[in-house]
């Protein structure tokens, strides 16, 4: 058992290489239409994983992550349209801008806790949405097109976007894994579980939370930019839509908060649900909500939580819920 544990980071690295190879090979085997769906799946998975990182690893619950989806998309669209630069090259700007915005608001919103913190981010999202809706130079209600991609070949645009989306998905799984076994990941887990103890062992609680929030929100912004790059058009009503939050919550809750594997299952279930019930409109949103309520009543740790406790499988065992597990992980990273 110990030997298996010692080997796990190596196994995960091997899995990461295989997954990356699969992503790289995909455009040769998959039709453009299917690739578009895969971009959407990857982007939504990245949104969900970004929220999961905040809620399950940093311990910050937010009901306003659509704020960063919109900010990332608008940042990319505006920067590309104004300067005429290739959007694929300036994509990191979306991360920098969203992360910077998160850094700017955190001193104020961190004064609130739990649901109040969650809703204050939502309030900020509403402010930004109404601000953009009323400004003509930001495209007002009807939004903005992405000009630069019009002149590019369609297959190049599709393949490049697909690679970015694939990279997001890979980071959401393997990046999160390596982050969670790093020093920062341990500090985040300590702060999430018990702030007093964390600060007693020398962790700066405020800065750790700040860093986690900025990182997670920047990532969501990046994913938002990639998502809207694949649809070529962004408008405030869609980009800052609270329904993004509903989807993220559903995926993470159903799969299991604070696990890496859970949101993978959640994303699969979400897209199956959508394919089956897309025609039913509100009924399908109702089912997402009802499923979230049921999971909270039956098993708050989600489907992956049930699998883990019933079958004892722990693929990317990055969750440090109990003290025992945490100490075994710590020796592992030290060795």
């Amino acid at each position: 058992m110990t030997r298996l544990l010692l080997k796990r980071p190596t196994l995960v690295a091997a899995a990461a290489v295989v997954a990356a190879a699969l992503v790289i090979a995909t455009p040769w085997f998959v039709a453009e239409g299917d690739m578009r769906l895969m971009i959407e799946i990857f982007a939504v998975f990245a949104f969900a994983q970004g929220w999961n990182f905040l809620a399950g690893y940093v311990g910050i619950m937010s009901f306003g992550q659509q704020l960063f989806i919109g900010l990332g998309a608008y940042c990319l669209f505006l920067a590309s349209n104004w300067t005429g630069l290739n959007p694929f090259l300036i994509l990191p700007l979306a991360f920098v801008f969203s992360a910077g915005f998160a850094a700017m608001i955190s001193p104020f919103i961190f004064r609130l806790r739990d649901a109040y913190l969650a809703i204050s981010i939502w309030v900020i999202a509403e402010i930004v949405r109404s601000f953009i809706s009323q400004r003509d130079w930001l495209g007002s209600v009807s939004g903005l097109p992405l000009v630069a991609t019009r002149e590019m070949a369609r297959s190049v645009v599709a393949t490049s976007t697909f690679y970015y989306a694939g990279a997001l998905a890979l980071i959401s799984v393997f990046g999160l894994y390596y982050l969670s076994i790093s020093r920062l990941g341990l500090a985040l887990a300590a702060v999430r579980d018990n702030e007093e103890t964390a600060s007693a062992i020398g962790i700066n609680v405020w800065w750790t939370r700040f860093f986690g929030f900025v990182l997670g929100s920047g990532f969501t912004g990046l994913a938002g930019a990639v998502y809207y790059m694949s649809v070529f058009h962004v408008e405030p009503g869609g980009a800052f839509d609270p329904n993004w939050m509903v989807i993220m919550l559903f995926i993470v809750i159903i799969g299991g908060v604070g696990t890496i594997e859970g949101p993978i299952i959640g994303t699969a279930i979400y897209f199956l649900f959508r394919a089956w019930f897309a025609g039913t409109g509100n009924l399908y949103l109702m089912m997402l909500g009802a499923a979230a309520v049921l999971v909270m009543l039956i098993s708050p740790s989600g489907i992956w939580g049930i699998v883990k406790s019933k079958l004892g499988i722990d693929l990317l065992g990055a969750r440090r819920a109990s003290g025992l597990e945490a100490s075994s992980k710590k020796t592992r990273t030290a060795s």
Binding site: M61, D114, V246, M286, A292, P300
Partner: peptide, 17 residues
């Protein structure tokens, strides 16, 4: 607090739609 908040959030979605 997270389960309570998420439970009521789910409820809100059901109710609204």
């Amino acid at each position: 607090q997270i389960p309570q908040i998420l439970l009521t959030f789910g409820l809100a979605i059901v109710l609204r739609n």
